[in-house]
C-alpha cells in the first residue's frame, strides 16, 4: 500500500471538495478498495473516508418505493423488513454474495462501484487496459474462465462481479448521485455501469467528486422474485452466471418478466427485448429457449469461458421454469 493522507469530511460538500482531485478516492466499507490498494492496483494519495456522512437510512419514498442510503450496509439492506417482504430478489442477491463479515462492511454505494475480479486486473505485473490504459489485455489470450461473453471489446473482457446490482437492474432501480457543482442527478442503475469499449478504465458514469447518496427502488410489484447464482463452490464464490428475475403469471400467460444477468458482461446485463418476448406468452420450454437465443445472440466466448453461453441459456430456462412453475 502506498502512503496516503487520510481525510474524513464532515459534510457532503466537504466530501465533494476532497474527492474532486485526481489523486483522491472515497472509501466507505473498504472491502474492495483496500484489497486493491494492498495490491497497488489502486494508489490514491488521499483516501477520503465518507463513513460519517450518514446516508445509512432506508426509507419509503413518496411514490411508494424505497430509498436505500448509499452507506446502508449490505447486511442492513438484506435484513430490512420491507426489502425482505417487497423486494426479496434484492435480499437474495445480497445474501448470495460474499460472506456475512464482508456484507457487514460493504455498502450500497461501494458495492455498485465494486471493481472486476479479472486476474490480470489484480496483478500489477500483467497487462490490463482497465488498470493501465494501453497496456493490453492479458485475459484475451490468457485464462478467461471468469470473463464476459456479452458486450466485450478488444480492449477488455472483464465482468462486473457483484450480485446486488444485478437485482437492482432487474428492479429498475435508480442511482442518486450528488455532484460537486450541481444538484443531485439520477441515473437508472441499468445505465450506471458502462461497457468497456475503448475506455475499460471507466467502470461507471461517476465523474470526479461525485458521490452516490442512495439507490431508489420503484413501487413493489406483486410477482415472484428469484435470484439464482451458479458458482463453483456452494458459498463464498463469484458467480459464473447469475440471474435476477421478477416474474408474474396471470391467466396462464406471463404478465411480467424483468430479468437481469450477472457474470456475463462488464455490467449487470439487462436486455429489454427479453421482457417484450416473454410477456403475453404462455410459459414453455420453447419460449425459454427463444429467450435464451435472444439473450445470447451477440455472445462471444474466449475459449476458456465459452461454457458461459450454454450455462446462461440453461440457467435462464431453469429460473423461468421455477418462476412460472413450468415443468421443462
Amino acid at each position: 500500500m502506498r502512503p496516503f493522507a487520510f481525510q474524513r469530511p464532515d459534510s457532503l460538500a466537504h466530501a465533494h471538495e476532497l474527492t474532486v482531485p485526481e489523486d483522491a478516492t472515497a472509501v466507505a466499507g473498504g472491502t474492495n478498495l483496500l484489497d486493491l490498494m494492498k495490491l497497488q492496483v489502486e494508489t490514491p494519495e488521499r483516501l477520503v473516508d465518507i463513513n460519517r456522512l450518514g446516508m445509512t437510512e432506508i426509507q419509503e419514498t413518496a411514490d411508494g418505493g424505497l430509498r436505500i442510503g448509499a452507506l446502508a450496509t449490505n447486511t442492513a439492506t438484506a435484513n430490512d423488513d420491507r426489502v425482505r417482504a417487497d423486494y426479496p430478489v434484492l435480499a437474495r442477491a445480497i445474501l448470495a454474495g460474499a460472506t456475512q463479515q464482508l456484507r457487514n462492511r460493504a455498502t450500497t454505494g461501494g458495492n455498485l462501484c465494486q471493481r472486476t475480479r479479472c486476474y490480470y486486473f489484480t496483478n500489477i505485473d500483467q497487462p490490463c487496459n482497465k488498470r493501465e490504459p494501453g497496456s493490453g489485455c492479458g485475459a484475451i489470450d490468457g485464462i478467461a474462465h471468469l470473463h464476459a461473453v456479452l458486450g466485450t471489446s478488444p480492449s477488455c473482457i472483464a465482468t462486473y462481479p457483484g450480485d446486488m446490482a444485478v437485482a437492482l437492474s432487474a428492479l429498475d432501480a435508480t442511482v442518486e448521485i450528488a455532484s460537486p457543482d450541481s444538484d443531485e442527478r439520477s441515473v437508472p442503475v441499468r445505465d450506471f455501469h458502462l461497457l468497456p469499449g475503448d475506455t475499460p478504465c471507466r467502470d461507471n458514469v461517476l465523474e470526479r467528486g461525485e458521490i452516490i447518496t442512495a439507490v431508489t427502488l420503484p413501487r413493489p410489484v406483486k410477482a415472484k422474485h428469484l435470484y439464482r447464482k451458479v458458482r463453483e463452490r456452494s458459498s463464498y464464490a463469484f458467480a459464473l452466471v447469475s440471474v435476477a428475475a421478477i416474474v408474474a403469471v396471470e391467466d396462464g400467460v406471463i404478465a411480467r418478466a424483468d430479468l437481469a444477468f450477472g457474470g456475463l458482461a462488464h455490467k449487470p446485463w439487462h436486455d429489454a427485448r427479453l421482457s417484450e418476448l416473454l410477456v403475453g406468452e404462455a410459459p414453455s420450454a420453447a419460449l425459454f429457449d427463444k429467450a435464451g437465443d435472444l439473450l445470447l445472440e451477440g455472445a462471444r466466448g474466449y475459449g476458456e469461458n465459452d461454457f458461459k453461453i450454454p450455462l446462461a441459456r440453461r440457467t435462464l430456462a431453469a429460473v423461468m421454469a421455477e418462476a412460472t412453475e413450468t415443468e421443462i
Binding site: R117, Y119, Y120, Q126, G138, D141, G142, I143, L146, F238
Partner: peptide, 14 residues
C-alpha cells in the same frame, strides 16, 4: 497463464 506461465488464481478467492 499460457503465455508466461504465471499462476493466475494465486489467492483464496479464486
Amino acid at each position: 497463464d499460457p503465455v508466461d506461465g504465471h499462476l493466475v488464481n494465486c489467492d483464496l478467492a479464486e
